[in-house]
């Protein structure tokens, strides 16, 4: 066994070394997670005066609620749309920026820039452009192009706007990783293929794209997680779940029910479901998708 593993002389030292990290993980992850699981079985007064054990009733109520299923499917559709659009556009831009062009650095900088904008601010920027009451672009859409632009009432418009805002924010992140990935594709391989007569499309799909697969896989995971769990500020800024409750994605609903409506048990049950969802998603991705990735 010629492994590079280091043998600790003292049996306690390694545990001591990981202890600080474990303490943090315990306090900020396991403890709240355990609390959430516990609370999800209770109906409770916000001031903590009364706790009534209700078993799985909080869960049963969610699963019997067609609105919850609707929130589920909207969240999934939202995450998939963001992932597809943010990744494909970022890949296209990265390929273009990787070519030898004039003002290459300028383009790269501009494309990376949005990453520095916080998610909430990006939501507000899009709100100010597209809000039917105050938005500049909303005004142009309505008065120049005669579009009945009213995303406060039309679900399709609201969904497209949210997807655009969320993808725009994520684009920069994807761009950085794709660009780095492209730069590590050996020139020689591409040149050899060119000499063998492969056209630029063939070179991209047969050589470059497969070589990018670790990056693509990583981004796929990150984008889905982003789409599912980190788009809360965008929904909060732009639609707040409207029209009706059609854009009330899962993370938004958890916050709304818990923080605004003070339904702690129901909100806790939703977060437990989300927790299970993240675990399943991650396990699934690493088990099934990673096998097809060539490192």
């Amino acid at each position: 066994m010629s492994s590079k593993q280091y043998e600790f002389k003292s049996p306690i030292l390694p545990y001591l070394l990981v202890l600080p990290q474990m303490v943090i993980v315990f306090i900020f992850f396991f403890w709240p997670a355990a609390q959430a699981i516990l609370q999800s079985f209770y109906l409770q007064d916000p001031f903590g005066g009364r706790m009534i054990f209700v078993g799985f009733q909080n869960y049963a109520k969610l699963f019997a609620d067609p609105d919850y299923w609707q929130s589920f499917s909207v969240s999934a559709a939202f995450a998939v749309c963001i992932t597809v659009s943010a990744m494909s556009i970022a890949l296209f831009l990265a390929v273009q920026a990787n070519k030898k062009i004039r003002m290459e650095t300028f383009y790269k900088t501009m494309l990376i820039w949005p990453y520095a904008v916080s998610t909430l601010v990006s939501g507000v920027i899009w709100l100010f452009m597209f809000n039917p009451n105050v938005g500049v672009i909303a005004y142009v859409l309505k008065h120049r192009f005669g579009v009945d632009w009213q995303y406060l009432l039309h679900f399709d418009q609201a969904f497209i706007l949210l997807t655009l805002a969320a993808s725009w924010k994520q684009l920069a992140y994807n761009f950085v990783f794709f660009l780095a990935g492209l730069q590590s594709v050996p020139e020689t391989l591409v040149e050899a293929a060119a000499i063998d007569g492969a056209g630029s499309a063939t070179r991209f799909w047969k050589i470059i794209f497969p070589m990018l697969s670790p990056t693509t896989f990583y981004l796929l995971v990150m984008n889905l997680v982003y789409g599912f769990f980190e788009t809360f500020p965008i929904v909060h800024a732009i639609t707040q779940g409207a029209p009706g409750k059609s854009t009330g994605i899962l993370v938004y609903k958890v916050w709304r029910d818990g923080v605004i409506n003070l339904d702690l048990g129901g909100s806790a049950a939703q977060s437990v479901i989300l927790m299970v969802l993240v675990i399943v998603l991650t396990v699934f991705q690493f088990r099934f998708l990673e096998r097809r990735v060539t490192y």
Binding site: L153, F155, G241, A242, P243, G244
Partner: peptide, 8 residues
Amino acid sequence: QVWEDILA
């Protein structure tokens, strides 16, 4: 929410 559904 319902009012928005009515208007839509």
